[in-house]
Amino acid sequence: MFEARLVEGSLLKKVMESIKDLLNEASWDCSGNGMCLQAMDSSHVALVSLMLKSDGFENYRCDRSISLGINLASMSKILKCASNDDIITIRAEDDADAITFMFESPKQDRVSDYEMKLMNLDTEHLGIPDTEYACVIKMPSGEFSRICRDLSVLGDSVIICCTKDGVRFSAKGDLGNGNIKLAQSANVDKEEEAVVVDMREAVTLTFSLRYLNFFTKAAPLSSQVSLSMSEDVPLMVEYKINDKEGDSKGYVRYYLAPKIED
């Protein structure tokens, strides 16, 4: 038996919105530690690694590890039937061919449940090496979304150049070129508005804006995003999943393979 109850159900709705445009289907691997999902997009350019920690749920029971194969578009549609303030419970029997979602209104005067068929997925699992990145950039998630959206006007790719002075995002195309430079925040009152660069070595890498724009769908989960880069390895874009009190409930990490000069 697997059962997980999340009082702040909107978090699960936001998690689904952050992956449903990038992935068609994926397995939720449920264990005592929590619910994990790892999957590549169909072009094998990007990888999503997602964790919802068991102690982030108000109630969590997982008698034995199970893998729930899910059509993510279907799950997203079902979760749209939950109100933002609903409590969401996910339930699956061992060896079941279906998963149940229960939505309770805060006053408990409306309870709905939806059963969804599970899929048999033969998913490939990749080992993500522990990496000491040359640069880690933290910035407001809304700022990163805006940069990706704005530079998409100019081209398909963004060159991210991180030095001790700050970060520069550049794009060029038929109509011209654009650059956005962010300086490190000297002193900010609010931590979530800060731009912080932790640099060991300067890095310049090129990435597809189409994928970065998919990643920014996770911005409602977190006020801050971190970009971790080293030469010639995939970029890691991380959004921490925090509840209203700011406690960590897990993360959504996206890995994006760089564009390499021929």
Binding site: H44, V45, H125, G127, V233, A257, K259, E261, D262
Partner: peptide, 14 residues
Amino acid sequence: RASQSKIIEFFCSE
């Protein structure tokens, strides 16, 4: 012109 690499060129299958 830069070409897009694949994630499986960097991470191994487990």
